[in-house]
Computed example of a mutant assay.
Amino acid sequence: MISVMSQNSQKPPSKPFHSPFPNARSEGESDASSEEAKPVHQIAMPEALAGSGALDRLVATARDYARQATADNTNAAYAKDWAHFTSWCRRRGANALPPSPELIGLYIASCAAPEAKAPARSTRALSVSTIERRLSGIAWHYQQRGFALDRKDRHIATVLAGIRRKHARPPVQKEAVLAEDIIAMVATLGFDLRDLRDRAILLIGYAGGLRRSEIVSLDHGKDDTLDSGGWIEIQDDGAVLFLRGKTGWREVEIGRGSSELTCPVHALEQWLHFAKIDFGALFRRTSQDNRRVLDARLSDKHVARLIKQTVLAAGIRSDLPEAERLALFSGHSLRAGLASSADVDERYIQKQLGHASAEMTRRYQRRRDKFRVNLTKAAGL
């Protein structure tokens, strides 16, 4: 049984003890809610130094670098994780600070099997992957506040192991957009500004095996914008994309296709020419009358909507109801499509997708020949 730690078992000597339960506060203890609400990335000036304008600017620069240590999407997800956890604590009269492994063990158990009397928004059981992500977000926020959360503590590790054992399911994979599919999808687009842009997005995203966030973060040139996630260089034989991904910077080579109608580099050149883009964000919004290009960078949500829209227009998986077809496809369908359609050595696909392991690449290969190597016959049977 998970026991509750006593006051003596907590060991952050420089900080007052906060019991996870109400009416058990130590003398002189302040409300933890103000500490919970403090922003993260609290880079401060050393106490031994006297403040100055130059040092203040340096502190601001350090804070900006600290914010960029993790991707914006990761920061947003971790913020939601922390907000959910602290809200759960408040509803039960518990303090989120300092970290209590017992309390977090109860929290992840509640996420896997919500109480019947919990608010309606909290009654849905979370998947194992979501619970693990929430635990990562909570640990990250504790670290930003100067605490260390021991995820190997038995109150957390054993509960999480039990949740995995009972509730773990194979991951739900999105349908891959295959070669014949992407050709049919771009055929539904016209040749006005918006369609030229969308054609380039689909073909570049497919041929590069890009995440939707990587597509919209591209700039025309290096260091064009502050929020750039990479840039392009168009050459005679194709285009080279310099991308800042999850695992650091990588180069993605996209060769020219066999037909101008389906060539990703030609589609990109057409978009840049007619949109008159030679600086800044590569993929941008267009005006309502579709006659001019605006400065605003596209949201990555546009890529997901575009894929769903063209899937329907092309009649892909028309054997299914529309709602099911929409649920099958997402931004990751482009990455899975390249991995499933390209008949090349697996190592080249792994490099293109930026995966650290071949095992991750195989998860994207929907049509991979699983019995290419027959160990049964090789063993003499």
Rank of each mutant, 00 (worst) to 15 (best):
R145I: 06
E253D: 15
I163L: 01
A37T: 07
L160I: 06
D198Y: 08
D56M: 11
A339E: 02
S33N: 14
V373F: 09
A79S: 08
D236M: 11
A66C: 11
V293L: 02
S136L: 05
A207W: 06
K308N: 12
E214W: 04
W140K: 06
H273N: 11
R25A: 03
F21W: 09
T74F: 10
G190A: 00
C111Q: 10
T225R: 01
V373D: 15
R335G: 11
E180I: 07
R211G: 14
E260N: 15
A79L: 10
A60R: 08
F85R: 04
A66E: 07
D295W: 01
A76P: 03
R121P: 06
A71K: 09
L149K: 00
A187I: 04
D56I: 07
A109V: 05
E29V: 05
R284N: 10
L135I: 08
H220S: 08
Q365M: 12
M1E: 11
E180G: 12
D295P: 04
D237S: 15
V303T: 04
V159Q: 03
D64I: 13
A139L: 08
M5C: 03
K351A: 12
L268M: 09
Q365T: 12
K80T: 13
A336Q: 00
Q235L: 11
E180Q: 13
F371K: 09
G315R: 07
T247V: 07
V265E: 00
I232A: 02
A62Q: 03
G205C: 02
A62V: 01
A157K: 03
T130A: 11
H273V: 13
Q173C: 08
P16F: 12
D223A: 14
I156N: 01
L282P: 01
W88N: 12
I2D: 04
P46H: 15
R292L: 06
R165H: 05
L58K: 01
T376Q: 06
G230K: 09
T262V: 10
A44W: 04
D198L: 14
I277Y: 11
G280R: 06
E180N: 14
Q173N: 12
C263G: 08
F329G: 00
S52M: 13
A125D: 13
W249A: 11
A187G: 02
R256F: 05
S30G: 11
Q68E: 10
R366H: 04
D224Q: 08
P170C: 07
L160V: 01
E115C: 12
W140A: 10
K377E: 10
